[in-house]
Design a protein around this nucleic acid. Sequence first.
DNA 1: AACACTGTTAACGAAAAGTTAAAGTTGGAG
DNA 2: CTCCAACTTTAACTTTTCGTTAACAGTGTT
Lengths: 228, 228
Amino acid sequence: MYRILLVEDEKNFGSVLKEYLKMNAFEVTLCENGEEGIKTFTAGKFDLCIIDIMMPKKDGFTLSAEIKAIQKDIPIIFLTARSMREDMVKGYKLGADDYIIKPFDSELLLLKIKAILNRHYNQVNENQFLYQIGQFTFNAKLRSLKDKQGHEVKLSPKEAELLNLLCQSINDVLLREIALKKIWKEETYFTGRSMDVYIVKLRKYLSADPSIEINNLHGNGYSLMVKV
Amino acid sequence: MYRILLVEDEKNFGSVLKEYLKMNAFEVTLCENGEEGIKTFTAGKFDLCIIDIMMPKKDGFTLSAEIKAIQKDIPIIFLTARSMREDMVKGYKLGADDYIIKPFDSELLLLKIKAILNRHYNQVNENQFLYQIGQFTFNAKLRSLKDKQGHEVKLSPKEAELLNLLCQSINDVLLREIALKKIWKEETYFTGRSMDVYIVKLRKYLSADPSIEINNLHGNGYSLMVKV
DNA sequence: AACACTGTTAACGAAAAGTTAAAGTTGGAG
DNA sequence: CTCCAACTTTAACTTTTCGTTAACAGTGTT
């Protein structure tokens, strides 16, 4: 049960978001401005902050700086109005923080939250390297993909890393940016295109089993789905 | 002989699995529910637990928490129904534990069991010096490699050291950098090339048995694979 | 309709590894 | 002390593997 500090001055929007997150098994504390936010943060324990940038009294960036001063590594997701200039937000992008533009798909926010929490806390079994994918068995250490007949294909390092990430979030979403940061260490046009090429390669390898699909979520990432 | 505690409420599936594991040289105790599971665990000694998550009376997570309270570091493999949501399993603190989705390839379970036991208990016995490699017997101290016919080859110091490292991670990866650090004490272009030369030599020695392969993992290292 | 995102293929160049042989190095035997 | 043989490193050349990029086609969004 992760604890989220939500700081949002629009009352309606804030409480709707709070309810939505609670429905999805998060513990949420809602604050209506930056001052209240820093007080609440100091008093409690939180795993993640979601902060509106434009707020009266104390803006989101200032608040986040104060929070980081207390707990350096806490992940923060900024909420920004569409009108806000992208480069301004990016300029403030610190460390592993993220931002999301209002109005947004609540589903997307949930995905980001999960992905970020995962990245920060669930050092998800770096040890796990054996996966069953439909009729295939994938050994990430040896970079081998074997089908039921015992036919083996060797994957290249990048192929294996990508498939490994997909397996870690099997039947769920692997966000583009997360894959790029983890595998390519940077997120540019070219690394993005490179990743697309690898997706094609993985699809080819896995095409023997029709119950396996690597689906694209336009603008968000990919998901490795294995049907029943 | 490792001892496995298997807790599974489906009687048929449980006993089939138990027999399969026994066939593969494990000592297995089968329990049919969580309560029985914790009693049995308290009474006996076990190296690994395999626990179904969905069980009446006491679910697998609760059981595992109780078991961990008694023996903190015992490895656990969870069995989950396909219907169970993936993120629910991952959301639960898996720690160093692993999980597997039913129905699964029994081969995969065996691989996982071996991998887990290996990393928990076999902190690689550095003192071992006698290895069986396919049809060969390798004595690392005497640096001798004998085939079934008793023909013996004497290996040079470096050859023997390298083969020894390969044997320590048989059917797994020997990372280049680790081999270089352990044998050559430094990692440069030339020591790397030197190692390549020794790999060629070892391959030549072992080429008599086609079930033995020293595979290169491009950019990673080598793996000594012996087919069964 | 315009634009951004994705699918797909092929080609190029860089890096790693395979291979063989010559050049060093070292530690005894004489 | 000298020389030889075993051993190791360096060199040179070849082959393989890999990742990125370009180019063009197709798709989803606004």
